[in-house]
Nucleic acid binder design. Structure first.
Lengths: 114, 114
DNA sequence: TCTTCATTTGAACATTTGTTCATATGTTAA
DNA sequence: TTAACATATGAACAAATGTTCAAATGAAGA
């Protein structure tokens, strides 16, 4: 990264901070986690799974959405390794697969509730 | 919320979980925080401000983006009360305004780095 | 086998989002 | 006042996103 001295106001501070910035790949991964939780309906699904596993059908009732919409969102959460599933006959049960995500949620919940 | 007994697989579990779900307003606010951090370029700005304040111009250099793009993103972060600013002559310095956000970032950074 | 049910998938659509470009503020120094 | 500079703003655009609808899996029971 080259720093244009003509434009830059405080070259020293810029250099200091540049050193502390994580690499782009890490930033992208962090953003991905936040993005997974950034949609209210997707977040609600995760909240619904916080205490116990549920099948798609039940999640749809809890979240007041169609089975299809829930299934689409669960696929995203599954891809992100935020939820996992297990089959029991016709029914597929989803549950949280990532403890860090649980911590993030509790922290943001505290924030919202002061 | 009424639960259709014909369709619902496990009415008891649904009722249990419905009780634990935060109210919609809280869910929206949680999602908003995550959304603010869900864009890589916006997250990078926050990361740049994690250790010290910077002017728009410097952030643009650090993040390798135009001043305008940075300014637009800073407005979003300001609206969300994630960053604050102070004027010193022509220059406006931005810094983090929310400790919870700092915690969220450290936690997600830990997650990414295992 | 056929039917039913839970879930998944794909395409289509409207909506949201981030960046760019041009222009506008607002501050400082001449 | 003027010029120069830092930042902000608005419109426009392409890209990404969430939901809907219809159709496809895949498992269980008749």
């Amino acid at each position: 990264m080259d720093i244009c001295a003509e434009k830059c106001i405080n070259e020293k501070k810029v250099r200091e901070t540049v050193k502390t910035i994580p690499q782009q790949e890490d930033i992208s991964q962090m953003a991905d986690i936040f993005k997974a939780l950034s949609d209210p309906s997707r977040l609600k699904i995760v909240l619904a799974l916080l205490n116990q596993e549920h099948c798609v059908c039940d999640i749809a009732v809890i979240c007041d959405q169609t089975d299809s919409a829930i299934s689409h969102q669960l696929r995203i959460l599954r891809t992100m390794k935020i939820v996992k599933n297990r089959r029991e006959g016709k029914i597929i049960y989803y549950s949280i697969d990532d403890d860090h995500v649980i911590s993030l949620i509790h922290m943001s919940l505290n924030h919202v509730r002061h």
